[in-house]
Design a binder for these strands. Structure first.
Lengths: 347, 347
DNA sequence: AATCGCTCCCAAAGCGCTTTGGATGCCGCA
DNA sequence: TGCGGCATCCAAAGCGCTTTGGGAGCGATT
């Protein structure tokens, strides 16, 4: 049994489709009594306007597209993705929007965007995982479809809207925290440095070091996929150095867990012999402790970022003149049990 | 500049919309020469039929909906979600389908499904995270919208299509493996046991134990969110018992990592003093080692499951009579460095 | 020369909704 | 009595596409 249509509903009520439509959409030119009748009948039949038809008639798809890069070079499905989506989804469902996911390969981005535009399935787009130099932004700007970037692209040449965490400041702050504890040999276990956020984090780290007249040791800086294995690998190599680090700055909880494993495998005590500070995206399935944080961390909810991105995009769609908009989220530094003064021998 | 429409394209070519449409859709009644002309013009203008209009006209939305439960009781965004989506997404984009995500709260599932049906935005649905007794299945079956369940719901009273891993056998096999190594005190660190897969895993564990005349110790069985903290908590409590387990069977790599941490914190050596077997969903960002697995594990790619679910659903949409379909994926037992013979003192 | 059968194309209706531009009836007011 | 004004409602067009039901043109057949 197919769902009931507007026309059928109108027929049953002895009204015209026009009146029923207006009634349901809250237009004033309809008697309150009939409006009540209509509402009642609609509820009784679980009537919902067909989105496709509505979209065709209004020209608004009532859907937002999320474009997820499926890179061939680093074939990793982003762990923060689920949380971001959850945050954005809350906002969309509150506003009656659907969420459309497109996984597009790096190669045919250009074609993919045009298609999305031409197919008219979405009113706006959220762009994930911007690189330092990201060509997708110019492309989207040219297409004239509203969009918001989760993160930034340093070298983008056109204005665009974004929501980002202040990664530079977060890592600068974290580095200062370690420096204040007396650490000098600080390792950076970073994400892939063609990603914009990773570059900014490195800059923050370097800036804090430079402010104390320190030059980071290249042997203590690695980049890579932010996995447990990466953290373990990096820590293993670095702890074997003649002059090993006394502290690690990690880009993700997973990396930090890998570092911790290797630290403990070396018989070193976390927070005593070696300190770890990590960035914490507050992922639902990867919590940094319960009440008390395990790792000292720069904390910023990626779910909240999802909400902000979504809200911003809906705002831009409602009022295109308000673009470009920007929103900077500050990470907070929470102190856990993974940090302590640098060992005396190192001071 | 709005995208070009069929009518405009037709006008430019001096043809009727009918002919252009047929030409583009491969119908036979059009001259090959004109078909080429049309194709060329379409390519030049980057023409794509408007999906909303096409959907309205054909009655097919060319989109699949994924319904993600946003539970209030366990507010966890499923870590396997991103990988599943990636797998399904591959299949959809290959077939020209869009993917629609709906996050719906446990409370108003019923309303949500009806809406989705009535709004007509999708041609089929994939259901995630079935519980042992899941009312959503009967609901969807009643609505008459094609759907496939990722997993099963033991107490469902209606036939339905599913793709599932043989969780029972996987955990039975893993348990037998540990038993063969001489372990008798085996702990089960399970997922939440209102989830169907978790129940099956427990059954597999219990069956293997029973086959050797062993009764699992309730003190060695816990359930919970599959997080690192859960694994650590469980291991801490169990290792403090007068008669601690010599082996752990974990439901996820994260749990296993938590167990490992606690095991090592106790000064015990993994694979010597204590063994761990875990289930491994082969998540992109949570690999169980590179070539050689770190943990001995029952391995089954959730991404592949996503592909299978998607393919099955598209198959059902194309040929509704083929439903219900079922597909059982077998996990393979891969041996890593986390298991070894039970310590002699325990034999 | 008339008819048939193709091939190739088109006009028009329809998918379910919104929206423009009236119609209708009823009131009060001069 | 006549008319403007208001409150309610409706007919019809249109969103961009597919699809049904022809219709022209042309070579082949009789």
């Amino acid at each position: 049994m197919p769902p009931i249509t507007l026309k059928e509903l109108a027929a049953e009520l002895g009204l015209s489709p026009t009146t029923v439509s207006r009634s349901l959409n809250g237009y004033p030119e309809v008697n309150e009594a009939t409006r009540a009748r209509v509402a009642q009948a609609a509820a009784r039949h679980h009537y919902r306007p067909n989105t496709r038809a509505k979209a065709l008639a209004t020209g608004r798809a009532m859907a937002i597209g999320h474009i997820i890069p499926i890179s061939t070079q680093h074939e990793i499905v982003n762990p923060i993705f689920a949380d971001f989506i959850a945050g954005a989804g809350e906002v969309y469902s509150g506003a009656g929007y659907d969420m459309l996911l497109s996984l597009v390969a790096d190669a045919d981005q250009s074609r993919a965007y045009r298609e999305i535009r031409a197919k008219g399935t979405v009113d706006g787009i959220i762009l994930h995982g911007p690189k330092e130099d990201d060509s997708r932004i110019a492309l989207l700007a040219e297409l004239g479809l509203p969009f918001v970037v989760h993160g930034r692209a340093t070298w983008a040449k056109v204005p665009y809207s974004w929501v980002d965490v202040n990664n530079t400041r977060a890592f600068q702050r974290a580095t200062e925290f370690l420096l204040d504890l007396g650490h000098r040999r600080i390792a950076l276990v970073n994400g892939l440095e063609f990603m914009d956020f990773a570059v900014r984090r490195r800059h923050g780290f370097e800036a804090a070091m430079a402010a104390r007249g320190l030059v980071p040791d290249p042997a203590l800086m690695v980049q890579g996929e932010m996995t447990e294995a990466q953290g373990a690998h990096a820590a293993r190599a670095m702890l074997a150095l003649p002059d090993p680090p006394t502290a690690f700055l990690c880009a993700s909880l997973l990396s930090a867990m890998g570092v911790r494993r290797e630290v403990e495998a070396h018989g070193l005590r976390l927070g005593r012999d070696v300190s770890i500070v990590t960035h914490d995206d507050e992922l639902g399935y990867l919590r940094n402790g319960e009440e008390e944080p395990i790792f000292t961390a720069t904390r910023s909810s990626v779910r909240e970022a999802g909400r902000r991105c979504a809200a911003m995009l809906l705002g831009i769609i409602a009022d295109p003149a308000s673009a470009p908009r920007h929103e900077m989220l500050e990470a907070v530094l929470v102190v856990g049990r993974s940090t302590g003064p640098a060992p005396a021998s190192q001071r």
